[in-house]
């Protein structure tokens, strides 16, 4: 029985894969960035499929909004007008073979080790409940996980300082 969500998953997976390939093979950097945005939104929809609405919001707003704009800026500010995608064939073939090696091995590996249990992957219609639980329990979880949120904050601070440092250094 083909269910809606299965169908949606397949469509979405194809969307992700093709837009991911588009990231690689788009002619211009900005097209590539646009493809990346599509990929990110697709991944966000995968989150939606497993009832992680909150992560969907995070993915779309932070990744699709913030990071994508930064990457677009980077692409626009650093690319020449005649900067088009090109690759030499032998190099690409070698890389492709290496990646294929990994892909095949991991495929075998996963097929051996992941349990195949159907129907368990998502639970229906308790997103709201889960979210509330998430918010009330995140602090307890945080106690168990150590210092996740301060770590994130520190990481942001470090990144901010680093980028400011880089930007200022160039002005000399």
């Amino acid at each position: 029985m083909v269910e809606f969500f299965d169908f949606f998953f397949v469509i979405n997976a194809l969307f992700i894969v093709f837009s991911g390939l588009g990231v690689l093979f788009a002619k211009r950097v900005m097209q590539s960035a646009l493809s990346l945005i599509f990929t990110l939104v697709g991944v966000a929809n995968v989150f939606l499929l497993v009832n992680s609405e909150y992560l969907w919001v995070i993915q779309v707003s932070v990744y699709g909004g913030g990071i994508a704009v930064l990457l677009l800026f980077a692409g626009r500010l650093t690319s020449n007008e005649e900067d088009h995608f090109s690759f030499d064939r032998s190099d690409f073939l070698i890389s492709f073979l290496f990646v294929l090696l990994i892909l095949a091995n991991l495929f075998v590996f996963i097929s051996k080790s992941i349990p195949s249990q159907r129907g368990n992957i998502y639970t229906t219609d308790n997103g709201q409940l889960l979210l509330r639980q998430f918010f009330t329990n995140i602090w307890q979880a945080n106690q168990g996980l150590g210092v996740i949120l301060p770590f994130i904050a520190l990481m942001f601070l470090a990144a901010l300082l680093a980028s400011v440092k880089l930007a200022i250094k160039e002005d000399e």
Binding site: F98, V99, L101, I102, N105
Partner: peptide, 16 residues
């Protein structure tokens, strides 16, 4: 990076 990927791939192959 290519050599690194090759190394990882070979390791995985050995494991498998």
């Amino acid at each position: 990076a290519k050599f690194m990927i090759l190394g990882i791939g070979m390791l995985l192959l050995v494991f498998n």
